[in-house]
């Protein structure tokens, strides 16, 4: 850490300098992210409350077991772990972009921002596939004594307990599960996906500004650092979305 000399006994709150030794923009980015953490926290906790109030909740390993190109193979957790690793890797490339920015290396920032944006787009592509799979994929469900086809949407949930011994066209037949499942899943992963999308847009703007040499003119790459904080936050939130929806 390079730190310019500060006279001994200087009071941080004495005026004339930033009390946190940090630029206003960066401090406010941190406080924005903290408030955003409360928004996500409130969503996840309301999901937890609803789940605790239900007698039955679908097993995520049963719901999220598909992988593109593998048809009906039972691969629990496989696709979501791919998505998790994509986000971790794009977070690492973002760290490297910020680091190159500290070293005033424009080419390096450009390279790592490019990979970060690509990682973000890959994650969004994965999420689009997963949503499509859930919304369009129907399952056999016993409703009012009749077997019906039902998909996972905000108003329908085919993932209730299975009806023992009942088969229909060679498939097990379930019962409708708690309706809240779809609303919470699409609502919270959608809110996170919207953060990823806005993160990609912010990173894209930063990439263009780096290429135009704006930060070299300004003399520092602090904007990359702020964009980086936002991007890492997206990864941080995914840790908890992953925990609450896919693991437990």
């Amino acid at each position: 850490m390079a730190t310019a000399a500060i006279p001994a006994g200087t009071k941080w709150w004495g005026g004339g300098k930033s009390p946190f030794n940090m630029s206003y923009g960066k401090a406010m980015m941190w406080y924005f992210l903290m408030s955003d953490a409360f928004t996500f926290g409130a969503f996840l906790i309301s999901y937890g409350t609803t789940r605790f109030s239900a007698n039955y909740w679908p097993d995520p390993n049963r719901v999220f077991n598909a992988f593109p190109g593998f048809g009906h193979a039972n691969l629990p957790l496989a696709f979501v772990s791919l998505m998790t690793f994509i986000l971790i890797i794009s977070s690492v490339t973002m760290v490297l972009a910020v680091h190159e920015g500290h070293n005033m290396n424009r080419k390096g920032v450009e390279k790592y921002m490019f990979w970060t944006i690509l990682g973000g787009l890959a994650f969004l592509g994965c999420q689009a596939w997963e949503w499509t799979h859930l919304i369009t994929g129907t399952h056999h469900v016993l409703v009012d004594g009749v077997v019906k086809e039902m998909a996972t949407t905000v108003s329908t949930n085919p993932w209730g307990p299975l009806v023992p011994g009942l088969m229909h066209d060679g498939h097990e037949v379930g019962t409708p599960g708690p309706v809240a499942f779809g609303g919470f899943f699409f609502g919270i992963t959608g809110f996170h996906g919207f953060h990823v999308l806005s993160g990609v847009v912010i990173n894209l703007i930063m990439y263009i500004k780096v290429r135009l040499g704006h930060f070299d003119q300004r003399g520092h790459y602090e904007m990359i650092e702020k964009a980086g904080l936002y991007w890492h936050f997206v990864d941080l939130v995914w840790v908890f979305v992953f925990l609450c929806f896919y693991l437990v």
Partner: peptide
């Protein structure tokens, strides 16, 4: 550069990593 790059006069801290190798090791 070896001089810290500062975003404003009010800040004396620049998170520049004196040692690139040590930073890469942490990452």
């Amino acid at each position: 550069s070896t001089q810290p790059v500062l975003a404003s006069d009010e800040i004396s801290f620049a998170p520049q990593h004196a040692d690139n190798a040590a930073f890469m090791k942490t990452v």
